[in-house]
Design a protein around this nucleic acid. Structure first.
Lengths: 217, 217
DNA sequence: GCGCCGAGAATATGATCAAATTCCGCGCTG
DNA sequence: CAGCGCGGAATTTGATCATATTCTCGGCGC
């Protein structure tokens, strides 16, 4: 028996990888939490090999941390790492926003606005996970519009690194304290103003990362 | 029998990973070349599982390309990808040079100068692989001095992507045509001039990537 | 306090299964 | 009669699993 019955499409390691990625991005894993292969094998009902490969992939992206020789944990960010992540995001994401502003169609803009509306609803409803999901989706959609797979991939990797810590910070502050900086961004995209889009993105990035830095242990 | 007798240090998948990484960086793999698990198993004398995990890690970093569902090849760069890689490198590497300039000690500088001397020797001697190795080592050392593991890791991933193509371009042009832009960089580091170091790095990056872009099929 | 021992967890192996690619022969068409 | 396309079988290759081996960590005895 190799594949679960009928699901011949996506390989198991890919499925496990996506599942773990969501768990990391949307706060189902706490920083510092140890990640054991066998635990995931029983939790996800997958075999050992796919789990191992997914973990290897995630550690390669920095989403998980090889602690010592044989232990994997969800990374705990320190001030220096947050600073570096901020620097990297500031270096990359405004460029993506700039590209997106130059390529954004009316349909793209409408889709972004819809996501942002759901994001507002999540904030209003105190739905933390919904906020994290829609916020990520907003940025992912923007990156898709930018049509820059290399840059987008780098940024996605960065998001994986601070996902767990972002969840902790937001959980502590509550969704009411979460600002929505996307309005400036949408306006800039609507106007096709690449410079303004980049500036708005930088503000969003810096503001978000400062929140994480402020919530460090 | 699992480990080679007595060598308990590095796990097999790590060894395989490092070996493949060198093969990619220093031109032992041609762009477009298919990479098969079984081929590597017999070539490297390793087991199947370590090879699989190393490949998964490299594909996660973009160093190898999942073509279709079942085929892995060394990536073939197109103009858009080179453009993106250039943009990413320009966004990141000058910042690392800047950091390095602020932290560079006399011993660091001496080490860099030694590497650069070997690089010059490789150019003079027509030693292509030596050029690639020392050029990479120069930048790796600089990144280590910058003490920014996140940024350095991102940049290392970018180098893996254009390694094979760089090799092709250099092989076509010959080592005599390879410029050495590191002198400006060393001077800036010696002077502790962070801005000049960043500018020199940007020039080096742009020049190198233009060479790759010019050599595209 | 230090070293030894056992339990648990991770690594590595090889076998095995499924899918895709390739290749070859057959029939069809010009 | 020769060239071309197509269908299926064989081979190649990737994915998964069960298991053996080794390493690490924690407790226990000296």
């Amino acid at each position: 028996m190799k594949d679960r019955a009928g699901s011949a499409g996506p390989p198991a390691h890919e499925v496990v990888y996506r599942r773990l990625r969501e768990m990391i991005l949307f706060g189902e894993m706490a920083p510092g939490q140890p990640v054991t292969i066998q635990g995931l094998v029983s939790d996800l009902g997958a075999g050992m090999t796919p789990v191992r490969e997914a973990l290897r992939r995630l550690t390669a992206e920095g989403a998980l941390d090889f602690r010592g020789n044989r232990r994997i944990i969800v990374p705990v960010l320190d001030a220096a790492t947050v600073s570096e992540l901020t620097e990297a995001r500031v270096a990359l994401e405004p460029r993506l926003a700039q590209r997106a502003a130059q390529r954004c169609s009316a349909a793209d803009l409408r889709r972004l606005a819809e996501i942002d509306a759901r994001l507002d609803a999540a904030i209003a409803g105190g739905d933390l996970r919904g906020y994290l999901v829609e916020n990520h989706r907003f940025h992912a959609e923007l990156n898709a519009i930018a049509a820059a797979p290399v840059l987008s991939g780098l940024v996605e990797g960065l998001w994986l690194r601070f996902g767990p810590s972002l969840r902790v910070v937001c959980g502590r502050l509550g969704t009411q304290a979460l600002p929505d900086r996307h309005k400036d961004l949408l306006a800039a995209l609507d106007a096709g103003d690449a410079g303004a889009a980049a500036a708005a993105m930088e503000a969003d990035v810096v503001q978000g990362m400062e929140q994480i830095a402020a919530g460090l242990p």
